[in-house]
Design a protein around this nucleic acid. Sequence first.
RNA 1: GCCCGGGUGGCGGAACUGGUAUACGCGGCGGACUUAAAAUCCGUAACCCGAAAGGGUGUGAGGGUUCGAUUCCCUCCCCGGGCACCA
Length: 997
Amino acid sequence: MSDRPIHDSEAKWQEKWEKEGVYRAEDRTFPDQPHPNPLLRKERGSKFYGLIEFPYPSGDGLHVGHPRSFTAIDIFTRKRRMEGKNVLYPIGWDAFGLPTENYAIKTKTAPAIVTAQNIANFTRQLKSLGLGFDWSREVSTADPAYYKWTQWQFLQFVKAGLAYKAKSTINWCPKDKIGLANEEAQGGVCERCGTAVEKREKEQWMIKITKYAERLLKDLDTVDYLDRIKTQQVNWIGKSEGATIRFQVSGFRFQDGIEVFTTRPDTISGATFLVIAPEMAEAWMRDGWEPSEEVEKYVAMASRRSEQERAGAEREKGGVSSGLKTINPATKKEIPIWIADYVLASYGTGAIMAVPAHDERDDAFAKKFHLPGIFVCTREKDWSLEKAVNRSIEWLEKEGVGKRATTYKLRDWVFSRQRYWGEPIPLVHCESCAKKKQKVLLIHGFEGSAESNWFPWMKQELEKHGFEVFLPTLPDSSHPKFEEWMAALEPIIKQFGEDDIIVGHSLGGRSILHLLSRLKKRIGHVYLIAPAVWEKPLNWNEIKKDPNWEGSDVDTFRVFHDHAVSWEDARPYADRKTIIFSDDDPYVPVQDHSTIPAGWFIQTLHQKGHFNHTEYPELLELILQSKNTGWIPLPDDQLPLKLPEVEAYEPTDTGESPLAKIRLWVETTCPKCGGKAERETDTMPNWAGSSWYFLRYCDPHNDREFASPEKLKYWMPVDLYNGGMEHTTLHLLYSRFWHKFLWDMGYVPHECGSEPYRSRRSHGLILAQGGEKMSKSKGNVVNPDDVVAKYGADVFRIYEMFMGPFDQAVPWDTNGIEGVKRFLDKVWGLFNVGAIHELPLPDDGLQILYHQTVKKITDGIDQLQFNTCVSQLMILTNGFQDAGGVPEEYREGYLKLLAPFAPHLTEEIWRTQLSHKDSIHRSSWPSYDPTKIKSATFELVIQINGKVRDRITVATDIAEDEAKEVVLKSEKVLTWLAGKSPQKIVYVPGKLISIVV
RNA sequence: GCCCGGGUGGCGGAACUGGUAUACGCGGCGGACUUAAAAUCCGUAACCCGAAAGGGUGUGAGGGUUCGAUUCCCUCCCCGGGCACCA
C-alpha cells in the first residue's frame, strides 16, 4: 500500500481547480420573486451566497482562528454546490487600519507596500488550505477602485442629510493619538492599546445611525440570526419607552425649562429633585447662565474626568446644587435642581427627575446630600405597571407638561479618524459657498395657495434661518392649467442655482419633475412632499365617486395630470432628491423603489393625512438639512479622491490627521464656485469599507457603479454569514444600517430586501493548548503554516472541524490532530486494498450505516454540526474497514460525503482511481433511502421500576401486545417481578418497555 | 448588578421532540506483528463492592414533576462572554 499523497497532491489539485474554474461563481439573471419575508424566503432560486468576514491582512499572517470559520463555510458552500446551487463564496481584504499604519511609522515603509506584502502572504496561506473561494472576485478596501465607491456612498449619506459635522466630545487615546468611537473605547480604555482615554472636543463627521434605530431593531424579526447575536443587537440599540416631562425653571432666563426623560412617569409625584448632567450646565453657562462659584468648580472638574473615572469602581456619587428651583407638576411643590455626573449627557435628555423612593441611585444621591425622599404612590394598587405608565402619560399630555417618548442607547456614528491609512473623506470646505444666501421655492398643490396648509409657517421658519423664500400663489389652483403653472414657476427657477432648494407639495411636487426635465437646470435639493405621482394609472371614474375628491374639478386636474412625468428624466438635475410620504394619506399612497428609480431618498413620516396641517416640524427639520455648511461634496467624476503619498505617517499632537500637513493636497478649488477651498483631512474608520464589501463581491470589477442592480438582484441577500462574536455589535450593526440606507436610496434593488444577511452564525475561539487565549506574548500561538507543512490541508481542515462544537471555544490539542491523520490514512487505505473485484457486498448492517451516515451528514452540515459529521464519517470508515473494503455501490457516495471536508484526498481518489474527468466538487450530493435507515430488528430495553434489567431483540414492527407478552415471559423479568404483578406497563415503540411494580 | 452561553470519564466532546448516559477521537492499559522500536491491527476501559455472575452509585449541588430527567421546573454554586450610573 502506498502512502497517502499529501503535499504534491494538494498543490496539484489547488492549481487544477483554479485552472478549471471549479469555484467560479456564475453571474445569472434574477430568476424569481423572493418572498417578502426573508425568513420564509429561504435560499431562493439557483444561487447560494456564503460569506465569511474578510480578514484584516496583518503582518502576523493567518491565525488558526481564521480557518475555523473559513473551512466551515467552505464545507457548507461545497455541499450547496454539489446540491446544484450556483455558489458565490468570495474573499477579500479589510485592508485599511491602524496596525499597518503603526508598522509603517516604525519601519518607514509606505502602508500601501506593507499591505500588499501582507495580502500576498495571506493569499498564499489561504490557497494552501484548499478553500473554495472565487478568487476572481477578490476585493481590497484600500484599492482606489474599491474605495472610490466607499467615498461615493459616504457622499450619498451627506446628500441625504444623514452625515453632519459636529463638535463632539470624543474619546482621545493619547498613545495612539487617535479619536475613538464610543464603541472602540468601551470601559474607558482604548480598544487597541488599553490606554485610558481622555475626553477632547473635536469637530467630527457623524452619521445619523440613530435615525435607523427603530428599523434596525424591528427588522431583526425578519432575519435568522443566532439568538445571542440578536440579543446583543437589541441591547446595544437599547430602546426605552416612557415620557419626556418639562419642568419650568423659575428665575432662569431660558423659558423652555428643563426636559427630562423617564421610563416611569407614574412615579412623578415622588420626584423630589431634578438632576442635570454637568455638560448641560456647561452649555447653559456658555449661553450666559452665571452660577455659583461652587457650581463652576464642579462642572470644570467633571468635564476633566474621563468616562472611565466617572463610571469608575466606587461610583461614589458627586454633585452640587445649581441653586435653581422648579415645580413638580404633580404635587405643585417646589423642588431643587442639582448637577451631578451620575446623569449622562448623552442619554435621554441629559436630565432626570429623581425619585428616591423608586430608584436606588436617586436614593443614594438623596441620602448623601440630605435631599428629601418623600414617597407618594400614585399607582392604584390593582393597576399593572403598563397601565399606570399609560395613565400618567395621558395625564401629562392633558396638562401639557409632558408627552410620550422613546429613547435609545444607540448614538450617532463618529465617522472621522485623524489618521492616514483610511479612505479620505471626499469633501472640501468653501468659505464663499458657506456665506451664500440660499433660495427656497415652495410650491403648493391642487386647490392650495400661499396662505394654505403649512406654507405660511414654513416660509416664516425658513426666513428665520436665513433663507430667501419664494412662495407664489399659482394661478387658479382649483382649476389648474399646466402651462400657466409652468409659466409662473419657470422664471423663478431660472434664478436658482446648485445651492438652492425647491419644495413641492402634492401637485406642486409633481410640477417639480416637469420643471427639472423641461429646464434642464441643475438645482441643489428638491423635496417632493406627497407628490401627485401615482404608482398605477388612476381610474378617473372612481376618483369622481370618491368622497375625498367631492366638489373638486377632477376633469381639469386630469388634463394637468395627463402631462407625463418621469423620475428618470428629472433625476440628473437635482443633486439631492428627497420624497416624503405620509403613511396614512387618502390621496397619495407610499411608494418605494420598486416604482421609483434609484437616487431618490424616500422617507415615510408617520403622519395622518395629506400634509394639510399648519405646522410640520419634521418637514422643517428635513429641509434645514440642506442648509449649506460650506462643505461641498466632490463631484462623482473627481472620485476616487486618492490618498496622497506622504513621507511621515505620524499623527499630529494637535489631533489633526497627517494629511493636514500636506498643504499642496489640502489647498484646492471648490467644485461648485471654483474659488479657493480646503479639503477635509480626516479619513474614514475601518467600519466604512467593511459595511458594503458583500455588495461589491456581486460585481467586483464594475467601474460605473458600486455594483449593478441586476447582479445585486441575483446574488443578494447573503444566505449565510459567519463571523466572530466580537463583531456582532459594531460591524453587524453598521453594515445593516449602511445596507438599509443604500436600499432606501434604491441603489440596492428593492427585491434584495432591506436586510443584507439572511442568516448569521458565529464561531467560537480557538484557544491555546492549556485553554487560555493564544497570544504572541505567551508564545502559545499555533501557526497554520506549520500544521499544513506537517499534516497537509485536509487533516488541518478536518481537525479544526472535529475539535468541538463550531460555536464554542475549544482548546487546540496537538495529540488530537494525530487521530484525524489516522482517519484519512484509513480512508486512503480503503481505496488501495487489493483489487476492486474483491470488494465486499453490503450486508444489512453496512447498508443501514451507510444510509444513516448520508442522512446525518446531509442534515449535519446544514446545521453546522461539523464535529459530529466528522465522527459519523469515522464510524462509517471503521465500518468499511471491518467489512474489508467499501462495497462498489457506496464508493462514490462515501467519497462525496467526505469531499467537502477533505477536498484534496477525495479529488485524488475520484479522478485518479475512479477515473473521473470532472471534479468531485462539481458532482452531485448523494441521497439516502429513508426506508433503509432502520433495521428489521432492534434491541428492546426492559426497565423495571426505572432500571434497565434486560434487553431482547425483537422485530422493528412488533405490536405492543406482542412485545408485552414476550417481555413478561423473560426469565430476568420474572426474577425481578418476584411474583408480584405489574401495576403499570409503559411501551415506547422502537425503544423500551417500562414496568412498574 | 443585569442579559446570554456553558458545567457529562484522565482529556476534547456525543446523546433525536424526556426513553439503553459516556458515540467518535486523544491519552491509558493488555495483546498480536517485530531481533527491537516505530507504524499498524486486535482487545480493554465511568466509579464503588465482588474472583466472577451480579449488584449499587453516577451528567456542578440540592429539591420537584414523571413509569422514566444530561434533557422540563424551582433554588443555589462555579466557569466563559456581553452590557454596565441607560433614568
